Simulated assay, not measured.
Amino acid sequence: MSPLFFGLDIGGTKIELAACDATLAVLHRERIATPGADFDAFVAQTAALVRRAEAALGRPAQAVGLGMPGVADAATGCQLSSNVPALNGRRVAPALAAALGRTVHLGNDCQCFALSEAQGGAADGLPSMFGAILGTGAGGGFCVGGRLLAGYSGLAGEWGHGPASAALLAAHGLPVLDCPCGLRGCLERYVSGSGLAAIHRLRGGDARDAEAVHALAAQGDAAARAALAIHLDLLAQGLAGLVLVLDPHAIVLGGGLSKLQRLYDELPGAIARHLFRGARVPPVLPPRFGDAGGARGAALLARQRFTPSAP
């Protein structure tokens, strides 16, 4: 009988479970609302979600993967910078492992997205890929040969907390913004969906989100059109840095902004302007699994760590 691998994608509003067989075919899926403020409720309801899936499939999972927002402190294992208040400062994986009576394999949710797109997704079969999330924040993951490389402290892919070019910010008349991570001038503050809305407000607009900026630009709003141009330039600069350091064979976009066709049309040329002559821009691709890839990627992570020889 084929082994089962469960993936849990933890979001600010929902927890999604995908129960997969060894081929990563999804056999069972369920979503519940995220208990945002009560840690004990989060652990209890997440464990119950796993048990319901096992009952529905008639057998236990070989391994459980957990895609978490934010990062885990390398020294303490406590979750940091999470958009789920109940999880900040908590050792989430050990608590859930104790509730389930088995090991839980922890990964960043953006890394799980990248892994899903590297295996069976938009970058399937490529030697390497970078998955770049552009949602409320900006994060990502780097895969080589279909396997996630998490790095020394598990931070590989946190490109959104690299610095935006000070010269570029000055050229566009933008201030150096504080970031909730504790640093200043992080790319995430400008290139994420919320960053695009922030740029519009800094240019005199009042958009609450990226969707509003695009709607205003379509109506001819000058501040919105300027915000889109600035956003594209800063995003291209950030992705050009990834190309220079990692030279991935493809960049797969995720998050809310990944639905915008204009990025696939305009980003390659914009990235090229931030590279030296002769450097090639890899394909910039839309995701195959969209927002459903996180749970699948967490299941892949569980399979990868449970069976190190597995792809």
Rank of each mutant, 00 (worst) to 15 (best):
L4A: 06
L8K: 01
D9P: 06
G11V: 00
K14I: 02
I15A: 02
I15C: 04
I15E: 09
A19D: 10
L24Q: 13
V26C: 12
E30K: 12
E30C: 05
A33H: 09
T34K: 01
P35M: 02
D38F: 09
A41F: 08
A41I: 07
A41R: 15
F42Q: 02
V43Y: 07
T46M: 12
A47G: 13
A48N: 11
V50A: 08
R52I: 07
E54F: 10
L57E: 07
G58Y: 09
G58T: 05
M68T: 08
T76N: 06
L80Y: 02
S81R: 09
N83C: 01
V92K: 00
P94G: 07
A97W: 10
A98Q: 15
A98D: 15
T103I: 04
T103P: 15
L106R: 02
G107C: 13
C112Y: 02
C112T: 06
F113S: 01
F113L: 03
A114Q: 01
L115Y: 04
G120D: 03
D124V: 06
G125Y: 11
M129P: 04
T136Q: 07
G141A: 05
G146T: 02
G146K: 01
L155C: 10
L155E: 10
A156L: 11
A156G: 05
G157C: 03
G160H: 10
G162N: 14
A167F: 05
H172I: 10
P175K: 02
C186P: 07
C186Y: 08
E188A: 04
R189H: 05
Y190I: 01
V191F: 04
S192T: 04
S192I: 02
G193R: 00
G195L: 12
I199W: 10
I199T: 07
R201M: 12
L202A: 04
G204R: 00
G204H: 05
G204F: 06
E211K: 12
A212P: 04
H214M: 11
A217D: 08
A218C: 08
Q219W: 01
R225Q: 15
L228N: 03
I230M: 15
I230L: 14
L232F: 12
A236E: 13
Q237P: 00
L239F: 11
L242Y: 12
L242C: 15
L244D: 13
D247R: 06
P248H: 09
P248R: 00
P248L: 07
A250R: 01
V252P: 12
V252Q: 09
V252F: 07
G256N: 05
L257Y: 13
R262F: 14
D265S: 10
G269T: 04
I271Y: 05
R277G: 07
R277D: 13
A279F: 13
R280Q: 15
P283V: 03
V284N: 03
P286K: 01
F289I: 00
G290F: 00
G290W: 01
R296P: 09
G297A: 11
L300H: 05
L301R: 13
A302T: 11
R303Q: 15
S309G: 07
P311T: 12
